[in-house]
Simulated scan of single mutants.
Amino acid sequence: MFSPFFKLFIFFLVNIINVQSQHNYFRCPYRYESVEESFRENKIIRDLDLDETQIYDNIQFIPLKYPNSDKVTCGAYLTKKATMKEPQVTFDPAGKKKGADKKLFTFMMVDPDAPTPRNATSRSILHWLVVNIKGNNMKTGTTLAKYLPPAPTPNKGAHRYVFLIYRQPKEVASRKTYVTLQERSNFQVTSFAIQNRLSGPLAGNFFNEAVQN
């Protein structure tokens, strides 16, 4: 039989592991800051005009990985060649609660630095938009904007490419698609969220990319 002291030790150890796991759920891997702290430090919340009253207590981390490239880890620098094809997205904002697979989510990728970081008159370029995602299965969603590879202006500095996940109260009825660059330009993240009554962002990630001639 285990002694009361050993049982107490195991109890505290399990709780420490659970707390640490929960803490890491909102933390950028390999970095000493949370996703929200990274977003604020890199002025993403400000430049995307995210409604801070809608941001959950903590922004979860969205795991992403491009083919033949490193994982996207809150501000990593990636090359144009590495980001030509859409990344693999894995997320679980619904959790493993009963009925979580029936919850609906919106996933988007935007560039707030177009055409250049110093003159972002096209803020933001919509690079990817999928709505009505059931649970964490991206394949169940409706794609309103197909993946558009990053194309930062050469020799004008790095662009931030931001990924966001919002929760939907119901199915997004809009069937508007974004195909041309003109249709994708000046996409307003917060306006879209308010119009469709989205909550969040509850998860995020981003990377930087620059082109030097």
Rank of each mutant, 00 (worst) to 15 (best):
M1R: 10
F2S: 15
F12M: 14
V14C: 14
V14K: 02
N15T: 08
N15H: 07
V19E: 14
S21L: 14
E33L: 04
S38W: 00
E41D: 12
D49L: 13
Q54H: 05
Q60P: 00
N68R: 12
N68I: 01
K71I: 04
C74S: 09
A76T: 15
T79A: 13
T83R: 07
V89K: 11
T90C: 07
F91D: 13
A94N: 12
D101T: 09
V110G: 05
D111T: 08
R118P: 01
R118K: 14
S124V: 00
S124L: 00
S124D: 13
H127L: 09
N132E: 05
G135E: 05
G135S: 09
N136P: 01
M138Y: 04
T140E: 08
L144T: 05
L144N: 11
A151T: 12
N155F: 05
G157D: 02
A158I: 06
L164E: 10
L164F: 07
R167Y: 01
S174M: 04
T177Q: 15
V179S: 13
T180H: 01
E183A: 01
V189F: 04
S191F: 02
A193L: 01
N196V: 04
S199D: 11
A203W: 00
F206A: 08
E209Q: 15
A210N: 09
